[in-house]
């Protein structure tokens, strides 16, 4: 039994340096996930800020160009959220690759953009929920002492919101990491595709596919642990 597994392992990964498919694929997966998350977080913070400042100030704003601008921007953000959350990410990936960025030769960049834009929609709603979860009295205290809207957000609201949304953000990261497994649709050699290529070469499904699954699992476990540590540190100033 053990001998057979060992032979399988050598055949699938060692022969012809096929482990490189896995390692290189893992590199691509991590690259796409990391930069997509970065982009998604930036989009999420911006769109969530627009959405919440519109919701919080629309009744107080006097008519004028700024109100028109903010209303328009808010409408655009809502459209973005609806379209992105309303269509499958694989379809978005294909549209991105074959239509929008058809002239681009950098497939990794296309994947980063598509997954980043996709993730941004979900992160927006996570952050918006976090901002709304902070007691309104915190906001009033900040404004009453003389902080501007932005200063209040930056110094008081966002730090508290971030702590509240950390579990949901970690969840989104995990989901994103696994969602990038569809990168193969646009010919990107990510971790999943790498395992699948090995399967195609060796006609042996068990080893490469389980290896791929195991790597995803390990990544998620390590990441969850790190988030757990961060969460405990942030909870120091709380009941």
């Amino acid at each position: 039994m053990f001998e057979k597994l060992k032979a399988e392992f050598i055949f699938n990964f060692i022969e012809g340096d096929r482990w490189k498919y896995i390692v290189n694929g893992l590199g691509v997966t991590l690259q796409v996930t990391f930069f997509a998350l970065l982009l998604g977080t930036v989009i999420g913070v911006i769109v969530a800020s627009i959405r919440s400042s519109y919701d919080q100030t629309k009744d107080d704003l006097r008519p004028g160009p700024w109100k028109v601008f903010l209303t328009l921007l808010n409408g655009l953000c809502k459209l973005y959220l609806t379209v992105i959350r309303g269509t499958p990410v694989v379809v978005q990936l294909l549209i991105g690759y074959f239509i929008i960025f058809v002239s681009s030769t950098n497939t990794v960049l296309v994947a980063v953009l598509v997954f980043g834009i996709n993730s941004g929609a979900y992160i927006t709603e996570i952050i918006r929920g976090g901002i709304m979860s902070v007691d309104h009295g915190q906001f009033e205290a900040g404004r009453s002492i003389g902080f501007s809207y932005l200063q209040t957000m930056q110094l008081i609201i966002i730090p508290q919101a971030f702590k509240n949304v950390l579990p949901s953000l970690a969840n989104e990261f995990i989901a994103l990491l696994k969602e990038t497994a569809v990168c193969g649709y646009i010919g990107l050699m990510d971790l999943t595709k790498g395992g699948d290529v090995i399967r195609g070469r060796t006609f042996s499904a068990f080893m490469p596919l389980f290896a791929v699954a195991l790597i995803y699992l390990l990544l998620v476990i390590i990441f969850s642990k790190l988030v757990g540590i961060l969460e405990r540190r942030l909870r120091r100033n709380e009941q």
Binding site: R62, D135, G137, S144, I145, I156, P159, Q160, K163, E238
Partner: peptide, 27 residues
């Protein structure tokens, strides 16, 4: 008056709330 910088004036008006509203993320 919309032209007045409210933030500057608020710096000179301290406010104390029923629910305290200390900034929970700071010591």
């Amino acid at each position: 008056d919309k032209k007045v910088n409210l933030n500057l004036h608020r710096q000179r008006m301290g406010m104390v709330f029923q629910q305290f509203n200390l900034f929970n993320n700071m010591n």
